[in-house]
């Protein structure tokens, strides 16, 4: 029982991070039909900024807001520099553009910093645990769950309750009609990127707290997991992205716990294989397809 609860908490923590990224991927896909393979770059850039600040002796109290801010700015900047120009291009072009952005950023860090990873101090409490009702939890897990819940609730609030969120959802559903209602296309896309950046930034905070590492490809695996989670939930469906993220996290933790130790390192590989196989049987993702859409 204890073990199950621990794993559940662990899985929710991990899944929450993926959900944050997946939600951002889903948002951007919704407004401009782009799967953003450069979504991990927000984490990468934040990682190097943290590394720089940590070198200068900044504490995590400063790092946390900086990371989030960096992610938001990176996200908006990437839209402005690259995606704006291919907005009406084919899917193929947009996908390769995002892939190109990922590459230029990664290679720039190799060029100007180093190909090898840089480490900075993780916060002291990261390995500490607490006991609740006789079950030991890692503090960081609880913090992640708390923070992701708050951010997801915040994101849902923005999307559901504010008129900007409504505008984003309107644009995601029908971009032309949104324009007809006076919504400015540039603004709504920028807002989606900013919100996606914010969510990725929060995920980045915990990712960096856990790893304490800045590397040119730091954002790659989180990006991929986020994109897969969004796809599992049915691309473009925002609740689906969250569910997909949580599910992916839970599966990952279960695999880590129950796989024999000697193939522990294979977890990511197994997950990717599982996802690839999943789509043979559920080509539309795990969620039920919505109401019939005309072709």
């Amino acid at each position: 029982m204890t073990e199950v609860v621990q794993q559940l908490v662990d899985g929710l923590g991990r899944g929450g991070e993926y959900a944050l990224i997946a939600l951002g991927v889903g948002l951007i896909f919704g407004v401009m039909h782009l799967v953003n393979f450069a979504h991990g770059e927000m984490i990468t850039v934040s990682a190097y900024v943290s590394y720089g600040l940590a070198l200068a002796g900044a504490s995590w109290w400063i790092l946390v807001p900086t990371i989030v801010l960096t992610a938001v700015l990176t996200s908006v900047l990437v839209e402005f520099v690259a995606f704006r120009w291919v907005r009406s291009s084919s899917d193929f072009t947009m996908l390769l553009t995002s892939f190109g952005v990922h590459f230029v950023v990664q290679a720039a860090f190799v060029m100007f910093v180093s190909a090898s990873s840089r480490h900075f101090d993780r916060p002291g409490w990261i390995t500490s645990t607490v006991s609740l009702a006789g079950i030991r939890f890692e503090v960081v897990d609880l913090a992640i769950i708390a923070a992701t819940s708050v951010s997801l609730i915040f994101a849902v609030w923005v999307l559901q309750r504010t008129v900007y969120g409504m505008a984003i959802r309107a644009a995601a559903e029908d971009f032309d009609t949104a324009q007809l209602l006076g919504i400015r296309p540039n603004q709504v896309i920028r807002a989606a990127f900013a919100l996606a950046g914010l969510l990725a930034g929060i995920a980045a905070v915990f990712f960096l707290m856990r790893t304490g590492r800045a590397a040119p490809s730091a954002g790659l695996i989180p990006m991929l997991k986020g994109v897969l989670a969004a796809l599992i939930g049915g691309l473009g469906r925002l609740q689906g992205a969250v569910i997909g993220g949580l599910l992916l996290g839970l599966v990952e933790i279960l695999l880590v716990s129950y796989l024999p130790d000697d193939i522990d390192g294979m977890v990511n590989g197994i997950i990717f294989v599982l996802v690839a196989v999943l789509f043979i049987f559920r080509p539309s993702g795990i969620l039920k397809v919505g109401p019939a859409q005309r072709p």
């Binding site: 008129v163 959802r169 559903e173 009609t177 949104a178």
Partner: peptide, 22 residues
């Protein structure tokens, strides 16, 4: 618009609010 183009995933009230974006 032709075909009405209401935003099916938004609520009725939200459709109105988005209509009043400006």
């Amino acid at each position: 618009p032709e075909h009405r183009r209401i935003l099916a995933t938004l609520t009725v009230e939200e459709n109105l609010l988005v209509g009043g974006m400006i």
